[in-house]
Design a binder for these strands. Sequence first.
DNA 1: CCATAGTGATTCGTATACGATTTCGTACTC
DNA 2: GAGTACGAAATCGTATACGAATCACTATGG
Lengths: 230, 230
Amino acid sequence: MTEMATAAGTSSGNGTVGSKSEQAYQAVKARIVEGTYTPGYRLVLAKIAEDLGVSVVPVREAIRRLEAEGLVKFERNIGATVSGIDPTEYLYTMQTLSIVEGAATALSAPLIGAADIARARAVNEEMRECLQHFDPIRFTRLNQDFHSVLFEHCPNPHILDLVHRGWNRLASLRSSVFRFVPGRAHNSVDEHEALLRLIETGADADTIEKAARLHRSATLDAYLAQAKNL
Amino acid sequence: MTEMATAAGTSSGNGTVGSKSEQAYQAVKARIVEGTYTPGYRLVLAKIAEDLGVSVVPVREAIRRLEAEGLVKFERNIGATVSGIDPTEYLYTMQTLSIVEGAATALSAPLIGAADIARARAVNEEMRECLQHFDPIRFTRLNQDFHSVLFEHCPNPHILDLVHRGWNRLASLRSSVFRFVPGRAHNSVDEHEALLRLIETGADADTIEKAARLHRSATLDAYLAQAKNL
DNA sequence: CCATAGTGATTCGTATACGATTTCGTACTC
DNA sequence: GAGTACGAAATCGTATACGAATCACTATGG
């Protein structure tokens, strides 16, 4: 369950490795999301090509795709870098995600069964325990698992894809906000439970959407309040 | 004003033509949006390369970017085609756009000045006149102009980019729904005026967002109702 | 001592070339 | 006559090669 379906809309999801271009895409994307390539990292085409045992052409294509997804910044005759998240970018990404994820969750809600709720609740309990000997990385990962359960049923693949992209952007800063705003984690767990209750009781879509959106906005606000004091 | 800033996030907006890859991207995208390449059209790399006087490598990159934007479908060893809009895709795209555009409009609203309102209202009046000797293409274009005024001030570039992408997808079917659901056009104009009133009077963000979203959903619903009778 | 021009190294951008895969037509067999 | 196997043409996928742009460093002149 930890693995989030990477289902990036266009990628060939089948078992075969696929073209070199596809391999390069997956490989570089993985390294970015998992944190091997940190924000600002200079992506030298020739080097990546060598590492993967391919030529530069497929790598260029892969980079272009990642660029279109916003994971990479590509400047003419300069090169590609992992698009870092300066605070402004973080704000934009979180705001966008709040909207898109809110919608996805609301659309998903009617399709969420009792089993899903149970899974989500279990994850949330793990998070609650995790609050003691606080481990931001683990907490962030659980957080993603939790929300995945809520929005993965979204019947609109476009919206789902946007949500995934948002999470991917955020994945760059592994331990996320929770490292910086520990107080937020506690509220977060409570809001999760409230969200589950809403879904369980079949609250109307608008209510759920607002709750989901606010949940994320609150995280953003907490970050901003914290950032102000630096 | 007819020209919508194509500002596709990553494209180099400067005056210079840019790299061949960029040229190819712009050229193919333009042909798709303007309707030269209709949905389902087979994009043969070699042919496009020849047309543009470049080799296939830059064209491949361009196609890859368009793929990530959803304008093109690219299958391994098969080739690229302009991603048509089967009714399901249309539904997904419209739903996504309703959410994203609603948010963009709401975020934009506080930044919309009297001059903008006046411009939008003028466009809407043109649309109203256009209702007599109905010209779907012209109407659709005006419709885009109108909404552009409303959401272009959106301070979050990510959301704005998503809105642009949505409109681009839709642009494939030039004359849009209005050709199929003529009755809808009339309501649309009225809703536009209502939307302007809300913005003028400084209605709260939530109200504006809902109105904008509903305005689009209504168009979608009209289409669906119509489609059922075929 | 600072500013600037020159030079070399690095890396990107694109063309060309060739192997791999799919598609479609044709002929052959049952 | 229908179905299948074979082969040619079209198209994609990737490697290699070379020209072009950028950057860092040094040397020279003020």
